[in-house]
């Protein structure tokens, strides 16, 4: 859903993702389920999202470990986006977000447009408080996993081969 934006931080985020060859789909709270349904590849799993949205039926929410291992798509929340790098900050939660974002070959991070920050230091500022107060762990993920160890750049080493960011905009 292409929406024009004049917010420079959001534009920078879009451009950075494009440079990484990471797809971005913008949606609304109401359209979220339908949008996600078009993006995920079966079988898909997800963890509960801290946004007021519904999952489509195609996504198994709160899966078993075996279902995570079988899944092709994993949907998890991103606390923040980092505009100048196209990164997403993925919190490691007790609902298993780290596993769901890591094992399936397509990762779909869901981020809110209000949470797109201009740069890494502003994201780390927020992370620092949570790490000190709540022992938070998080991953700053920039594009899919990659390696150049086998003689050429290959996307998809141990982690996801592709990332598709969904941004809730409202």
């Amino acid at each position: 859903m292409a929406t024009t934006t004049t917010n420079p931080t959001l534009s920078a985020f879009e451009e950075s993702l494009a440079a990484l060859d990471v797809e971005l789909t913008r949606t609304t709270v109401d359209d979220f389920a339908a949008t996600l349904d078009d993006i995920v590849r079966d079988p898909a799993v997800g963890v509960p999202l801290p946004f007021d949205v519904d999952y489509p039926d195609s996504v198994t929410v709160d899966p078993t470990p075996a279902a995570v291992e079988r899944a092709t798509t994993g949907v998890t929340p991103a606390s923040y986006g980092i505009a100048n790098y196209g990164s997403v900050v993925l919190p490691s939660t007790d609902s298993g977000a780290e596993l769901v974002s890591l094992y399936p070959e397509l990762h779909v991070p869901v981020v809110h447009a209000d949470d797109i920050l201009p740069d890494l230091p502003s994201a780390l500022d927020r992370f620092g408080d949570a790490a000190r107060d709540d022992d938070l762990s998080a991953i700053v993920a920039t594009g899919p996993s990659a390696t150049a160890d086998m003689g050429d750049l290959v996307l998809g080493a141990h982690g996801p081969k592709a990332v598709h960011v969904v941004m809730i905009d409202e």
Partner: peptide, 12 residues
Amino acid sequence: AYVSMLTPPVDS
């Protein structure tokens, strides 16, 4: 691609 910021033991 990844900067893991782990404050272990992790909650996963």
